[in-house]
Design a protein around this nucleic acid. Structure first.
Lengths: 242, 242
DNA sequence: CACAAATGTATTGTCCGACAATCCTAATAT
DNA sequence: ATATTAGGATTGTCGGACAATACATTTGTG
């Protein structure tokens, strides 16, 4: 039998440059914070021209594995949950996700998140939630922007306290997607300030008591309240987010 | 008072190129499937050199907004849930997410997903689940790879049936992250075939009956079963995925 | 006429060289 | 010792060049 050759790798050079660097990062040869060689250096190492190296770098850059640090040198960076959330929510927006889809997912995730939080939240995390609640309490009842900020921040701090980066990334991406629309809702909901404050207080109480069922139940009520707001504000749930 | 100037936009040209194209895609001027001008054309339109245009394109490319289609021309593409899931799971792996975090999130999401599915799954989606179950039933009890494939596919089809792209993206990214480790677990679990088959059958039954509580409960049992597998297989839950 | 082969053309991929802008480092002056 | 200045290193941008490839058109052949 005649010898069989493997199919040749005909990917463009800039893709190979990207992959080569990415591989060394993934395999741990290049640890977080490590400085990459200069472009000129990469040219001689890979044996290609600077144009190709630069195009390869752009590919890496967008995936968040690398960024320009001090001295403009490229620094290896491991993606943080917040960044993952950002690109994910961004992609979903571009992919045509609707308010309805986002809100439904929110309604599915956060009650469970509250339940888990009840069994795990540290005192620090609880304190952060109380701070948010206190901030909201002291806000003017008609300062819609401020109220929205505190409402989202409450979700944010709850997610933070779960001590699980995967959950955090998912919850954060929901926060980002829902943020804009909450503004509309709270703007047109009577007593929004009072109702959100009440919900936050009850949720905190349940979390303090390590009462998983209560935490979940109050979070559901909180979200159900927001849902009613969507109806009142006549937000079109089939409209694309962002 | 003297006039105040806005801070100048000092971003590199290639970034501006990327943003300019992205903006037109986002605003709908460039719809999905539309062909972008050639590089030479972009050069004259933006008034920059091809090097800069090409670097800008690389940035866009990695974010999945654009890809090389027929005739090598750049085509506008809106990100699909599966692609979002892929980049998200990839980023999480690079970000150092652990098996424990992924599994915990899985255990949080899928029971709720099953609950929602019970109230909504179409006959087609149910049929797809049955197909998976039947495939698993006919598989050899010691064909670990095949069993893993069907176990993941079951999750996959359930997520598909939810008819919610945001949920789908999140569940899919979990599937991708958990896939590799399930292989280890199922390999070392006695009666894995039988137990998974049983769980799938019960879940399908509950879905058919539109029984949300049952669907959720059986999914929880199913996942709890998998969790025991992790213990038996002595998988280190603090190890990074991938 | 239909279909295959050859040709031409447009576009991308890669290379080279050059220079301005920026930042870091180190020598110098006060 | 601190501030300033000069120098060097590195990135950002430019311009042009050519090979490789894919597409469109023409040409050749049955």
């Amino acid at each position: 039998m005649t010898h069989k050759f493997k199919t040749l790798d005909r990917a463009p050079v800039y893709v190979k440059v990207c992959n080569a660097i990415e591989e060394d990062i993934l395999s741990g040869v290049l640890k977080e914070g490590a400085l990459l060689p200069t472009e000129a250096e990469l040219c001689v190492q890979f044996g290609v021209t600077r144009s190709s190296v630069r195009e390869g770098i752009r590919l890496l850059q967008q995936s968040g594995l690398v960024e320009r640090g001090a001295a403009k040198r490229l620094v290896v960076k491991s993606p943080k949950a917040s960044e993952i959330a950002e690109t994910a929510s961004r992609s979903m927006a571009l992919g045509g996700a609707t308010f309805g889809e986002v809100f439904e997912t929110l309604a599915m995730l956060y009650p469970e998140a509250a339940r888990i939080a009840a069994g795990r939240l540290s005192d620090d995390a609880l304190g952060a939630l109380c701070d948010v609640r206190d901030g909201l309490r002291d806000a003017a009842p008609d300062a819609a922007d401020e109220i929205v900020g505190y409402a989202v921040e409450f979700f944010q701090q709850l997610a933070n306290g779960l001590d699980n980066r995967v959950m955090l990334a998912m919850l954060q991406s929901l926060n980002l997607m829902i943020g804009a629309s909450l503004r509309l809702v709270i703007d047109q909901t009577p007593n929004a300030h009072e109702r959100i404050l009440g919900a936050q207080t009850e949720i905190i109480e349940a979390l303090k008591n390590r009462d998983e069922a209560q935490a979940r139940a109050w979070m559901m009520k909180h979200i159900e309240d927001l849902r009613r707001g969507y109806v009142v504000a006549k937000v079109n749930l089939d409209a694309r987010i962002l």
